[in-house]
Design a protein around this nucleic acid. Structure first.
Lengths: 198, 198, 198, 198
DNA sequence: AATGAATGAGCGTTCATTCAT
DNA sequence: CATGAATGAACGCTCATTCAT
């Protein structure tokens, strides 16, 4: 009965937290936040209801932790985009790849965020951040398209953003049945053509 | 002193039904089905909770009535698409116009259906129908693109469908701030270019 | 549009009242008072909910009207029992016949009253009256048995009352399947034997 | 600090279950099933409404648990009746004693079951079982009376069953005021006489 | 750190009752 | 006399949260 060492405690906390977050993420993404109960999360995580409240003050804060994690993952990826002076065509290809890879790696995050974007009450806290994200991406795309000498770069950027989101929406909803890789290639070809038309 | 005439009763019923459906539609679309309570609907509609149950057997059946109405509205518009032997370019333009007009006329229906597509439990009854719709539209688009002599019409159709849904998704989320008409024109131009490339 | 004559009005009132009472009696007797709704009664009676409140101030008062009617019917029959100086054996036979006939004529009244005797809240108002009834019957039976020179007439009377209620209980529950007439004859034979034993 | 041991939990569960069942049994038996609310049961049991649903999935299943328990108690007693080759007179006495003892030990069970026998909707699940019980008892009584050489044993058995139920019905309704023991003795004497008449 | 029994606010729903027509 | 749309209190039930162990 010697006291646990600090690292052991920390390790246990991390493991439990991850169990809870994973279970909650899946349930939130597929059933929605309100439809998912704390009991379901506990059962799915293989722990007790009470334990969840050792790590998260409330169901809402559990969601926020998940969203923060999702945002952070997204931020990391998209920061790289900022990167250097690079051929704009390649940069655009890379940007698209990053988004596709991001969503393919964690479609569930994407699903959750998209679903929550229809829940006006919950998302309000994140709305500003999400909108800023969207705006940033749009600006970035526009500037790349400018560099590429494309006509009407603002509209092209909005159109590209919409197409991207549409493809990802379909991917999220049809999952394995969706030819996501073919669409990625096709999108790149389209961009190439856009450029050539000018 | 004498009881109301049948038409009077019918008129009252229609009015109340509409009050309820309108209130419910708005709340469901903006807060989600589970977040919306019967009390909220009643308050928004300016009636009592109990009255809702004079017209709808349950909260779920209220949703179904709304969805049926939405589907029906959608069906009506898209039937016309079937129509005649027409220049495929014009037909495609018309198809796009119909979808844009449909969503612009009732963005809230579109918002509700899109939001519900993330609620696995509720949508199951409608999933089949929605998927059939999506598939039909794809087939239709593909055949039009074939007539137009476009290369790789299957991929073009999927890409067009994704772009369309992406644009409408953005429109739903940004509403008045979104340049929906510009996007409509731009989309048509894009299609024109696609054709010319071949 | 001449005003209805008083008798016409009264006739209509009587007819409606009877429709309501009949419907309510059947439903109360088979489903219980609390399980039966005003809507069910109205539907069964072929009238509107509102009309019931033209004749009865509340659901409870409708029940009371029915019980009063049942009691009254019972009283009428049992009053005759009081009657003259008659051979006690015949008087007892007659008393038994009266009860059997009463229950056979309106088993539903009996069923309702028996069922309600288990509902402490409702019956309280009638409990006194019912108990008095029971006590009166017991006294009457006892005095007849005394006249017949039976040993231990008090216990014989209680036993007879219990047997009677037991038979009627079984009759109510099994209805047509129960050999009520055979039991009536058998009961009389038993009484004859009781007498002979002394 | 550490969670409760399994046995501790089980003990707590048993205690709570019993509190709920006891409260519900009394209320159901005296007010009827539909008149009794979950809130009343919780208040009577000294617990919260919600706790009831930790142990019983619904009000109906709470009733079923009580009825199963009642049936089981009854079954246990009546099995002994089956027993050996014994003097039929003694066997009959014993059978009567068992039923009297059973009802005297748990009059509330008897009251509940009798009351429910008037609720057509609820009892249906148990009706078959109860009818079988009644039929079995009748058969048993008849065969004993046959062994005793009684005339017309079928009618005697039905009459005895009715008398028994009548006595118990009166006992249930008058409780302490009813001379149940005197009735038991008297019933046995009656049976003795029946036999002697042949 | 971990459990799960316990709570109670609030949900969807029912239904006796009212009242304008 | 007769209707049925409308109300709201109260029901059965759910579930986020607390806390003794």
């Amino acid at each position: 009965m010697s006291p646990r060492r600090k690292e052991q405690v920390e390790e246990i906390r991390l493991k439990s937290t991850q169990l809870i977050v994973d279970a909650a993420l899946n349930l939130f993404a597929h059933q929605g936040f309100y439809r998912t109960t704390i009991s379901q999360i506990a059962k799915q995580a293989g722990i007790s209801k009470g334990l969840i409240y050792n790590y998260f003050a409330s169901k809402e804060q559990l969601l926020e932790a998940i969203l923060d994690q999702a945002m952070h993952t997204g931020d990391e990826v998209l920061e790289t985009l900022q990167s250097p002076e690079m051929d704009p065509e390649l940069a655009l290809d890379q940007a698209i790849d990053q988004i596709f890879d991001l969503v393919k790696a964690n479609p569930i995050y994407w699903r959750l965020i998209t679903a929550l974007s229809f829940q006006e009450d919950i998302i309000s806290k994140y709305k500003t951040k999400l909108e800023k994200h969207g705006q940033d991406n749009l600006t970035r795309l526009t500037s790349l398209l400018v560099k590429m000498g494309v006509d009407n770069p603002e509209m092209e950027a909005m159109y590209l953003a919409a197409s991207l989101d549409g493809i990802l929406l379909h991917f999220i909803n049809f999952q394995a049945h969706y030819p996501i890789e073919e669409m990625r290639s096709f999108l790149k070809i389209k961009l190439r053509n856009t450029q050539n038309q000018t």
